[in-house]
Amino acid sequence: MRIICFAKQVPDPEVPAASFKIDPATNKAAPVAGVAPVINGFDLNAIEAALRLKEKHSATVTVISLGKNLVQDVIKKPLSMGCDELILLQDDAFEDGDAASIAEALALAVKKAGQFDLILCGRQASDTDRGQVGPAVAELLGLPCVTLAKGVETGEGTVKVERVVADGTEVVEAPLPALVTVSNELGEPRYPTLRGIMTAGRKTPTVWTAADIGADPGKVGAKGRTVSTVKLFIPQVEKNCEFIAGENGADAGRKLALRLREVKLI
């Protein structure tokens, strides 16, 4: 079995809100000094799902990453976790795309990568929080698509997915090849082992340009956008918090209850 995963490099979402700044020139988050980018956490959940399947069914896992200024140590993490192959889509023509134009490039890359059984990717990226690229790729490749997976299991020509719904979960089945987007409920992605890191160090990612995958320059990146960004801004939510103090924690707790009663909140 061959599984393809998508992994996106994003700014570290754990950066405290106070240090989050926008670069108005690019309409993107400004890099925070000393904080390295990370692989989108939901993509790591998808890679974890792929590696669990690899352990059970001896699959090979190919990872495709699209982006600029990719940091080698960061983008190679899926390899050090146990993925087999890494393909980087690097070309100025891919830059500043939206869901439609990113999906176009990814779908072409999947076609070039050859035979596969399953595509796994994160439910959304933690920068754009868009949640569209997975289903868009499925549509372009004519694949059945299951979103928000908490568990993924493959059978004879099928994939069975437990997916997160409002009041619990739902188990669905689709024929392979299929595309599944994975949610954080799948569980923590594994840490790379030392051996994994060394193996990854010896591997050289394959790099493909727009020409390599036969992309129509008008359909990928900024030129292929269907939705334009007008602006990015930080909403102002600052409220004046009234701190309730006491002689100790218990006293403060009692005073908090009394204050809430005073303003008729309890």
Binding site: P16, K239, I244, A250, A252, A257
Partner: peptide, 28 residues
């Protein structure tokens, strides 16, 4: 950062604050 969006806040360990808060709420 939770305090930035809060109307009221207590800075303290929940183990100390919560039981007393709960008891006072029960009384009120």
């Amino acid at each position: 950062s939770i305090f930035k969006e809060s109307r009221f806040g207590v800075v303290g360990a929940w183990e100390e604050v919560l039981p007393a808060f709960t008891e006072m709420c029960r009384e009120l």
